[in-house]
Design a protein around this nucleic acid. Structure first.
Length: 273
DNA sequence: TTGTGTTTTATTGCCTCC
DNA sequence: GGAGGCAATAAAACACAA
């Protein structure tokens, strides 16, 4: 036990503590022990408002036992907690008087109530994060599938084109002169020409591993609005990240912001730490 | 009735603030 | 250094299935 604070132990000296100042400190000494004999048959804590309790029930209880607060007391404490979850000394004494409790009990109740609220809040935050994660995962999966689909499309079109080139007149050499040779490698050139020659799909070589430059360049062959199936999920995911990175916070900061907005209780005091 | 899990009340020790 | 907050914990009270 720390020297600065003396605690009232209801199992040993209930109803016999000396209430000092704001009710946080209790004295347990010789005098307390003497008076304990006189009052050991009384109920702990509840001597100020006897009418709140079922006399018979409580009189039958052993005085050493811990007693629960009555529904009325809990109700009033809950109402007070909703108003303000922190307890300034004046409010604490008022509540204690009103409820027939020791100020220390009121303080303890608020402390425990804050702890319960925090636990619930952590559960809510966890659920929110989990659902966000699940939806991101679903998004990712759909993007991967779309990617695979596009790759196979590119492969089949390339195959068709090569078969067609094998039987056609060699006209490609004429087009080469029209292209900016210094900016296009031979590999890129081949893919580009093939794409432009193809008539089936307007855009398919986007994810060709042999020609990543085409994808990365600002001048994409494939404007976003032509490939909603592929681009939109990415846009959606990135917009989340962008929002989060604006102020240097992670994606999850948004979640917590949303969580805070969802609070049913007026608890602006809660600070995520 | 009893064993077991959960909730509530209270204590303890540490930390921060003034 | 005291007051008060929080985390961890103990222990009583309670709920409930078997």
């Amino acid at each position: 036990m720390e020297s600065g604070r003396l605690f009232f132990n209801p199992s040993t000296c209930q109803g016999n503590m000396l209430y000092l100042g704001n009710g946080e400190s209790f004295f347990r000494g010789a005098r307390t022990m003497i008076s304990m004999e006189e009052t050991s048959k009384k109920r702990p804590f509840f001597s100020l408002q006897e009418e709140l309790y079922d006399e018979e029930y409580y009189d039958e209880q052993s005085p050493e036992k811990k007693r629960r607060l009555t529904p009325e007391q809990v109700h009033m404490l809950e109402k007070s907690f909703e108003t303000e979850n922190k307890l300034e000394p004046e409010r604490k004494t008022q509540l204690a008087k009103k409820l027939g409790l020791q100020p220390r009990q009121v303080a303890v109740w608020f402390q425990n109530r804050r702890a319960r609220w925090k636990t619930k809040q952590l559960e809510r935050d966890y659920d929110l994060l989990k659902s966000s994660y699940d939806s991101l995962l679903a998004n990712y999966d759909s993007i991967v599938k779309e990617n695979e689909k596009l790759k196979s499309e590119v492969a089949s079109l390339t195959e068709k084109l090569q078969a067609k080139d094998a039987t056609a007149e060699p006209v490609v050499s004429q087009k080469v002169e029209l292209l900016p040779v210094e900016t296009v490698s031979s590999t890129q050139f081949n893919v580009k020409v093939e794409d432009r020659l193809s008539t089936g799909s307007a855009g398919s070589a986007v994810v060709d591993e042999d020609a990543p430059q085409l994808v990365d360049s600002g001048d994409s062959y494939f404007p976003n609005d032509e490939y909603p199936g592929c681009v939109c999920p990415i846009d959606g995911a990135q917009s989340e990240e962008d929002d989060g990175s604006d102020d240097g916070r992670s994606y999850f900061s948004n979640v917590f912001t949303a969580t805070e907005q969802q609070h049913e209780e007026p608890l602006g005091w809660w600070v995520w730490s």
